[in-house]
């Protein structure tokens, strides 16, 4: 069974309980948005799923098997992580950077045709093929974000975990990136994405996981989870939810006091 699941994960960081018995399972082909206020444990949950943190209690199941029973290399082929504000430490060109995503697949004897094909597909999917020869420092913020996403896609993971991939992007690039995440899910992979903007979650997510203080507050389709009452309870803001004439749901938040 190819699911990714968290089984009552608990983790303390710096004396604070960041995750408290969090259980969730994720399904391939769907986009799950992880939402919640700052410090709710969204990124930590992603880290646990990606194996960067080891939970104190509970476990992560990958394809029905506990994480620990997988080798690092096989796990890396299963799960691709796009970390928050991903840095690039050496100014390499775009094609080289995207090819780094093949790390879990590559052998000591260099690039195979499969590697080259996967890199080309990833670059086409994120629309960065035309930048292939450009150095990373010559890209705009939006182009850079797409290249970094292409890097993860080049690894052809069954699960894409993205931690705030929309930060620092303008509205057009935000929508482009969301569309790209949808495409990834359409191609059969499971997408788990940490988002801050509730509108983005409504737009992209099949499923929403709402966290607060390290616990799951609600889980389900965005229309069911994101109600004004829940938004008030978790974020401490008033909200108005509406629908545009062409059927796109949106949410406007205002401070509590002004109500």
């Amino acid at each position: 069974m190819s699911v990714l699941a968290a089984e009552s994960l608990s983790l303390k960081l710096g004396g604070r309980r960041v995750l408290d018995a969090v259980s969730a399972s994720f399904v391939p082909g769907r986009v799950t948005a992880v939402l919640g206020p700052n410090g709710a444990g969204k990124s930590t949950l992603l880290s646990c799923l990606a194996g960067l943190h080891t939970p104190e209690a509970g476990q992560v199941l990958v394809g029905g098997q506990p994480r620990a029973s997988w080798t690092m290399r096989d796990l890396a082929r299963q799960i691709g992580l796009l970390p928050q504000g991903a840095d690039v430490h050496w100014d390499v060109d775009v094609a080289t950077l995207v090819a780094l995503g093949r790390y879990p697949h590559r052998t000591r004897w260099g690039e195979t045709d499969a590697d080259r094909a996967a890199v080309a597909r990833a670059m086409a999917a994120t629309d960065v093929t035309q930048f292939a020869a450009r150095p990373m420092t010559a890209l705009s913020g939006g182009e850079r974000a797409r290249v970094l996403l292409a890097r993860v896609l080049a690894g052809e993971p069954h699960w894409l975990l993205a931690d705030e991939p929309l930060a620092n992007l303008d509205p057009a690039h935000q929508l482009d990136t969301l569309e790209c995440l949808r495409d990834v899910a359409r191609s059969g992979a499971g997408v788990i994405v940490v988002l801050h903007d509730l509108n983005h979650a409504m737009r992209v997510a099949d499923e929403v996981l709402l966290l607060c203080d390290g616990r799951i507050v609600a889980q389900g389709p965005p229309a069911e989870v994101l109600t004004p009452e829940r938004i008030a309870a978790t974020y401490g803001v008033s909200s108005h939810i509406g629908t545009t004439p062409d059927g796109v749901r949106f949410v406007v938040t205002t401070p509590m006091a002004q109500r």
Binding site: G51, L52, L81, A86, V92, L97, L100, R151
Partner: peptide, 14 residues
């Protein structure tokens, strides 16, 4: 090379 992407990304790649 993998470390070019930072420690988190490198670890996630194995």
């Amino acid at each position: 090379d993998a470390l070019t992407l930072g420690e988190s990304a490198a670890r996630s790649m194995g």
